[in-house]
Simulated scan of single mutants.
Amino acid sequence: MSKTTPATAALTKAGIRFELFPYDYDPNAPRVGLQAAQALGKAPEQVFKTLMAEVDGKPVCVVVPSDCEVSMKKLAATFGGKSANMMKPADAERLTSFKVGGISPFGQRKSVPTAIDETATLFDQVLINGGQRGLLVGLSPDDAVRITDAKLADLTA
């Protein structure tokens, strides 16, 4: 496993301090984010999953706790849209340059509007995908918001 990914390179270039959290990725896990939290012995609400969606047909990146589901209604409202839906995996991979299960909000091929669930601010450190399957990065929620220029919002159902 490489410790340098487009995500970790983007964090390093931005001068953001982060910690690597490699784990054994299970592609057959019913919920990959929960599997990552369990593998690392971390609380599921501190491990955030990165999802790609569309609001009124435009791509957005959504970062929510691994034990939660995204509210499409809240997501659409966050970006001033009328409707939201999950992006097809192949489209998400093409847009971000990351494989599903390894999508990071950092270092994506094309920068898109990003929203991070407001519960991230409850922690000194959150774990977010580091750009490949089996690698999370730990960083402060403030840094995660700053590097992605994210909106903080209530995004969960």
Rank of each mutant, 00 (worst) to 15 (best):
Leu34Ile: 10
Val112Ile: 15
Ile128Arg: 07
Ala7Tyr: 09
Thr8Pro: 15
Ala37Asp: 08
Leu152His: 03
Met86His: 03
Leu139Lys: 13
Val47Gln: 02
Ile103Phe: 07
Thr121Cys: 06
Pro89Asp: 02
Lys13His: 15
Val63Lys: 09
Ile116Glu: 01
Asp26Tyr: 02
Gly102Asp: 07
Asn28Asp: 14
Ser111Gly: 09
Ser66Phe: 07
Ala92Gln: 05
Asp154Tyr: 11
Asp149Thr: 12
Asn85Ser: 13
Pro6Ile: 14
Pro44Ala: 00
Leu34Arg: 11
Met87Val: 09
Ile116His: 05
Ile116Gly: 08
Gly130Glu: 05
Ala53Pro: 01
Asp124His: 05
Ser140Gln: 14
Gln38Ile: 10
Met72Val: 00
Pro22Gln: 13
Thr121Lys: 13
Pro30Phe: 06
Gly134Lys: 01
Ile128Trp: 06
Pro6Ala: 13
Ala150Thr: 02
Tyr23Met: 03
Ser104Tyr: 05
Lys82Gly: 15
Ala36Gln: 03
Leu155Cys: 04
Gly102Met: 04
Asp154Ser: 14
Thr119Leu: 04
Leu11Cys: 13
Glu54Lys: 12
Cys68His: 14
Ser104Val: 06
Asp117Arg: 11
Pro113Ala: 10
Gly33Ala: 04
Leu75Ser: 08
Met72Asp: 08
Val145Pro: 07
Val126Ser: 01
Val70Thr: 15
Val100Arg: 10
Ile16Arg: 12
Asp91Pro: 03
Glu19Ile: 11
Lys74Tyr: 11
Ala92Lys: 02
Val126Phe: 00
Tyr25Met: 02
Gly33Cys: 01
Glu54Met: 04
Arg94Phe: 06
Gly107Ile: 10
Gly15Lys: 12
Ala84Leu: 04
Met87His: 11
Leu135Thr: 10
Gly107Gln: 13
Ala37Phe: 06
Gly80Lys: 05
Asp149Arg: 12
Glu118Phe: 10
Gln132Ala: 08
Glu118Cys: 12
Pro27Lys: 08
Val62Gln: 11
Gln132Glu: 14
Ser2Thr: 13
Thr78Tyr: 08
Thr78Met: 06
Arg31Leu: 12
Ala120Leu: 03
Ala77His: 11
Gly41Glu: 05
Gln35Asn: 11
Leu139Glu: 12
Lys58Cys: 01
Ser97Asn: 14
Ser140Val: 09
Lys88Gln: 13
Pro89Val: 04
Met52Arg: 03
Arg17Cys: 00
Thr50Val: 10
Gly138Met: 10
Arg146Thr: 10
Ser97Gly: 12
Lys99Val: 14
Glu118Thr: 15
Leu136Arg: 06
Gly80Ile: 02
Asp91Phe: 03
Pro22Met: 11
Thr5Ser: 14
Ala77Leu: 10
Ala76Leu: 03
Pro65Arg: 07
Pro30Met: 09
Val100Lys: 05
Gly57Lys: 00
Asp117Ser: 10
Asp142Val: 12
Ile116Asp: 01
Ala157His: 06
Ile128Asn: 07
Gln38Asp: 14
Asn129Ile: 02
Val55His: 00
Gln38Pro: 00
Leu34Pro: 10
Glu19Trp: 09
Asp56Cys: 03
Arg17Gln: 12
Ala77Val: 05
Pro59Phe: 11
Pro27Trp: 08
Pro141Asn: 13
Leu75Met: 08
Arg146Tyr: 08
